[in-house]
Design a protein around this nucleic acid. Structure first.
Length: 847
RNA sequence: GCCCUCGUGGUGAAAUUGGUAGACACAAAGGACUUAAAAUCCUUGCCCUUUUGGGAGUGCCAGUUCGAGUCUGGCCGAGGGCACCA
């Protein structure tokens, strides 16, 4: 027997799949479709283990669904616009396009070596003008529908990447890519009106039964719906403004009102612009505002105005108005009514400035003289000290009642507020999709006529400039529209716009007139299974849900709202981290383990400090190169290992030992295959063995269920069990009549995980027909004999083999023959017997 | 502070959804083969007993049940998300 030559065999099959267009997909209305999609990669250079895991999971599912007879769409493309290309190009004096395309070629080859069942005919790249042309059309359509607008606003400015970031791209006050502390800057920007769909995006979550709850909760929190009331406060003072609007969720505590706080950006601030003390105060606010921790721990500070606000429920009561650092301009109306007794933040502020703390809610178990002392009370209770509101149950009842009263008095009205803000999509970068608009001399916006699309990026330009390289491209910027001279928009679109609709493009990758063809969409969409990292829980997944609604808006021909029917978020691939004596990161390649201790390779004097296992990342050097692993162990072995150790939704530890054992497992399977082959050709097959049928059926049932439930790690265990069983059985038994058909079924079940090996073995035995997912035979699943569990007082005392469907009476007779059981039964009286058919008997005795 | 998820051997983890806890694998120890090593194979895995067997046992404490890793309540611990959101 030859050793299993994975290199030769894997290459052979990959070539076969390629040359025969095995994974090419066409619409076939006689077949049920299955659209399996993994989040497409950014072409950063080489694939990493995270990709291997993500795409292996998707490939197992695709191959399984194909074998089940589905018409499977399993495409791949490139999220090809973005900063790294621009940075790399600047450093190496290259064109971002060349850098990107070279990476795409490398990574495509690497993905092919993994043996993925991808329809490469549908490959798309978002930096290709055939792609972004349609994105520009979408942009203009949204502009026409009023879903895109331009406004001057405070934005998140990333000083390292020198671009604006969306709220979703600021994590803990830092840029999601650069890690730089984000600054506030006022700029004119393009926005997508995502907040228009806040309610719909929230409601849509309820229908996403096959999404992880975690992701749904995150989106729900991000949308941040809250019920409340808007209230107009009259103000006393020497300003032309006589009214300030506030949003509150607790109008029922209005009698506890003791100050009104405004954002420093509130419109009233314009009357204080020349006040030196106010300018100083505003500066102080912007300083503390940069990091999240500063905000969380930070002091509440205020600037007292000479204005007074009048309590709308008691016009005699007048309270001071402050500007305060904790009031956000872009939530509510940038103004807060302060009730220190029942809001901790207001309480802190009141303590600092010695403001009145009026208790208006008491806990149920306290008397009417209850007074808030050391901290605000926000629990449930009864309204007190509030005139006609007294006695109401707080909070639910008192809030609705108060709103009714306020509405009657025309002081306020019911209001629902959302935390979700519009999506700022302007980026001051070169390597992105140009925004297809221009400005005339007056600065008025003109869409680029659709006939002039695409607006392509200028090529071979100097990237070594400060700010946006497109700004200095005068030839490119100047444009004639209908004889009028105009200047192009130089901002490009956030790359998350590209990924908001790419799954539609895969359905019609070559459609020239529009982004997609409606017939294709009708057949393929929605994505039946989407697979990717949880880091996009809010970003990409929310944007995509918005984008479908935006296309759908005022569009009778397009009915998709939810692009992803089911979502699966896989865990990360982790590895131990290593540092040398100077705390410099070391790569696993440079580390050697001798007798349980770690040293630098080739130098057993240099001790290596071992850190915790963390998600593989270039910066910590704890990466394993998939190409090296595939080269040395083969794609099947890598696929097997990456699935074997942990459930796919959890993080997995990379283990060299585990990898080797997966490799050895393939070799063992090969040895087994050859022994089975020898038996099949040498021995007359005359003995029909029930047990092997039963085992195979059990295995088919287990693997099928585990595939359906994404228990891919358990499938690997099932594969090991199968090997162990077959290996033992063929050693013990000869001339098995039903070995052949069972082995064939098993090989088919192995195909999704180890496609090269399984196809090779199937081919080797001329099993080339009817390669379909085996159905389990329910009759064969019912065993003739059952291991019956015998319990005495709920404790297992014996395991007895009996015929199936044995009755309670006969079982009791049988178990009396068991020495151990009889010891209990003959010495004690039976109180009660619990009998579970074909499974368990529990005998309760007096002791 | 608020919300969510999760606690099972030395390790990664299984457990047909309330019915044999620890499948499958990694690591470890012992053994077989070998001059030796590698590779391969076998055995072991908490406590008591020579064995048959018995006891404890799924973070901790209670509860429901004939029976709880699984259900209920409380506590402890870990991870994640949001965070001056009015």
């Amino acid at each position: 027997m030859e050793r299993y030559n994975f290199k030769e065999i894997e290459e052979k099959w990959q070539k076969h799949w390629d040359e025969n267009n095995v994974f090419k997909t066409k619409i076939d209305k006689n077949k049920e479709k299955f659209y399996c999609l993994e989040m497409f990669p950014y072409p950063s250079g080489k694939i990493h283990m995270g990709h291997v895991r993500n795409y292996t999971i998707g490939d197992v599912l695709s191959r399984y669904k194909s074998l089940q007879g589905f018409n499977v769409l399993h495409p791949m493309g490139w999220d090809a616009f973005g900063m790294p290309a621009e940075n790399a190009a600047r450093e190496n004096k290259l064109d971002p396009k060349d850098w990107t395309n070279a990476n795409i070629i490398t990574m495509k080859n690497q993905l092919k070596k993994l043996g993925l069942s991808i329809d490469w005919d549908r490959e798309i790249s978002t930096c290709n003008k055939d792609y972004y042309k349609h994105q520009q059309t979408f942009f203009l359509e949204l502009l026409e529908k009023g879903l895109v607008y331009r406004k001057e606003n405070y934005v998140n400015w990333d000083p390292i990447d020198e671009t604006v970031l969306a709220n979703e791209q600021v994590i803990d006050g830092k840029g999601w890519r650069s890690g730089a502390a984000v600054e506030r800057k006022k700029l004119s920007q393009w926005f997508f009106d995502i907040s228009k769909f806040s309610e719909d995006l929230l409601n849509g979550l309820d229908g996403l039964d096959n999404w992880p709850n975690k992701v749904k909760t995150m989106q729900k929190n991000w949308i941040g719906k809250s019920f409340g009331c808007e209230i107009d406060f009259k103000i006393n003072g020497d300003l032309p403004v006589k009214k300030i609007k506030c949003f509150t969720t607790r109008p029922d505590t209005l009698f506890g009102f003791s100050f009104l706080a405004l954002s420093v950006d509130h419109e009233i601030s314009k009357y204080y612009e020349k006040d030196e003390n106010f300018i100083k105060f505003k500066e102080e606010c912007s300083k503390t505002g940069t990091t999240e921790e500063a905000i969380a721990v930070g002091d509440k500070i205020g600037f007292k105005t000479n204005l007074l606000a009048i309590n709308p429920l008691n016009s005699k009561e007048k309270v001071p108005i402050y500007f305060a650092n904790f009031v956000l301009m872009d939530y509510g109306f940038g103004a807060v009514f302060g009730c220190p007794a029942h809001d901790q933040r207001d309480f802190d502020f009141a303590k600092k400035y010695n403001l009145e703390i009026k208790t208006v809610v008491k806990p149920h178990d306290k008397s009417d003289t209850f007074k808030v002392k050391n901290e605000a009370f926000s629990g449930s209770g009864i309204i007190i000290n509030s005139d006609f509101l007294n006695g109401l149950e707080a909070p639910e009842n008192s809030i609705t009642e108060t709103i009714k009263i306020l509405e009657k008095k025309k002081i306020g009205k019911k209001k629902i507020n959302y935390r979700l803000k519009d999506w700022g999509v302007s980026r001051q970068r070169y390597w992105g999709c140009p925004i297809p608009v221009a400005y005339d001399k007056e600065g008025k916006v003109h869409p680029i006529p659709k006939s002039m699309l695409p607006v392509t990026l200028p090529e071979n330009i100097n990237l070594n400039v400060k700010g946006n390289p497109l700004d200095s491209q005068n030839n490119w910027k100047e444009i004639d529209i209908n004889g009028k001279k105009m200047v192009r928009e130089t901002d490009t679109l956030d790359t998350f716009v590209c990924s908001s609709w790419y799954y539609l493009r895969f359905c019609s990758p070559k459609e020239g007139d529009y982004g997609f063809n409606i017939d294709d969409i009708d057949y393929w969409m929605p994505v039946d299974q989407y697979i990717g990292g949880v880091e996009h829980a809010i970003l990409h997944l929310l944007y995509s849900r918005f984008f479908m609604r935006a296309i759908n808006y005022k569009n009778k021909n397009f009915n998709i709202k939810e692009p992803f029917q089911s979502l699966f978020t896989q865990g990360m691939v982790c590895h131990e981290t290593y540092k040398d004596e100077n705390d410099k990161w070391l790569s696993p390649e440079d580390v050697e383990k001798i007798d349980g201790k770690y040293f630098q390779k080739g130098n057993s004097k240099k001790i290596v400090k071992v850190g915790p296992s963390e998600s593989m990342s270039k910066s910590k050097k704890n990466v394993i190169d998939p190409e090296y692993i595939i080269e040395n162990y083969g794609a099947d072995a890598v696929r097997l290992f990456i699935l074997s150790d942990s459930p796919p939704e959890k993080d997995v530890q990379w283990s060299e030992q585990g990898m080797i054992s997966s490799y050895k497992f393939i070799q063992k399977l090969w040895t087994l295959h050859n022994e089975i082959k020898k038996k099949l050709s040498n021995e007359p097959m005359e003995i029909f063995d029930n047990e092997i049928d039963e085992f195979t059926n059990q295995t088919i049932l287990k693997i099928t269920n585990n595939l359906d439930k994404f228990n891919y790690n358990v499938i690997i265990a099932n594969m090991y069990e199968t090997y162990n069983y077959f290996n033992n059985t063929i050693k013990k038994k000869n001339k098995l009549n039903n070995l052949k058909e069972n082995y064939k079924k098993i090989l088919i079940c192995f195909t999704p995980v180890i496609p090269h090996f399984s196809n090779h073995c199937l081919d080797d035995l001329d099993f080339t027909n009817d390669l379909i997912w085996p159905a389990y035979n329910k009759k064969a699943l019912i065993k003739d004999e059952i291991n019956f569990v015998i319990q005495i007082n709920g404790k297992k005392r014996a395991l007895i083999k009996t015929k199936k469907d044995i009755s309670e009476e006969s079982l009791l007779k049988v178990i009396k023959l068991d020495k151990n059981i009889n010891r209990y039964l003959s010495n004690y009286k039976i109180k009660k017997v619990i009998f579970v058919k074909n499974r368990l008997i529990n005998i309760l005795i007096h002791e």
